[in-house]
């Protein structure tokens, strides 16, 4: 039988480290190594996502009740509870140097409210324990009928 060499040991250690990192990153053990189970808490919450500078067809493709998913994790965040839309406004620098906000023709801003359960950890809130939710962060989302990108506008804890 072949003896255990330094190469065998190195590969074994590398595989073990990869396994530990994968399990801790995906939350399979309920959190990162330094967080005890006492620090973990599930909170019902609503997330408001702002999708802006989009055309009418994007606004119309949002439907209440559709499940919204994160494009990054492919996990459901929750059902869409409310949709509000309005004209999108952007800034124009005038010839005299003044900045004015003007309505952009055929462009809209949509506020989508999604109900979810957030896993509270020391370093943040995670929808379904997986998808990190932070106000002001970019959020690539999709439903069965739509794919787009928004900004997390607000987290409403219930």
């Amino acid at each position: 039988m072949r003896k255990i060499t330094i190469i065998d040991m190195a590969v074994l250690i590398a595989v073990t480290i990869a396994l530990v990192v994968l399990v801790s990153k995906t939350g399979a053990l309920g959190g990162s190594v330094e967080v005890s189970s006492d620090d973990v808490n599930m909170i019902p919450a609503s997330i408001v996502i702002r999708v802006q500078n989009v055309r009418r067809f994007t606004v119309d493709a949002f439907k209440e009740g559709d499940i919204l998913l994160s494009n990054e994790t492919n996990h459901p965040v929750g059902p869409i509870k409310a949709i509000e839309s309005g004209p999108f406004r952007d800034k124009i620098e005038m010839l005299d140097g003044r900045l004015v906000m003007a309505e952009v023709p055929e462009r809209y801003v949509v506020f989508v409210t999604v109900e979810t359960m957030l896993l509270e950890r020391e370093r943040g809130y995670f929808s379904d324990g997986i998808t990190e939710i932070k106000v002001n962060s970019e959020f690539k989302l999709y439903t069965k009928y739509l794919a787009t990108t928004g900004i997390i506008e607000e987290i409403i804890y219930q």
């Binding site: 952007d90 124009i92 620098e93 005038m94 010839l95 003007a102 309505e103 023709p105 055929e106 462009r107």
Partner: peptide
């Protein structure tokens, strides 16, 4: 395309 009208402060198609 949408272009800003810098004189009147509006966007035009």
């Amino acid at each position: 395309v949408r272009v800003p009208d810098l004189q009147n402060g509006v966007f035009r198609q």
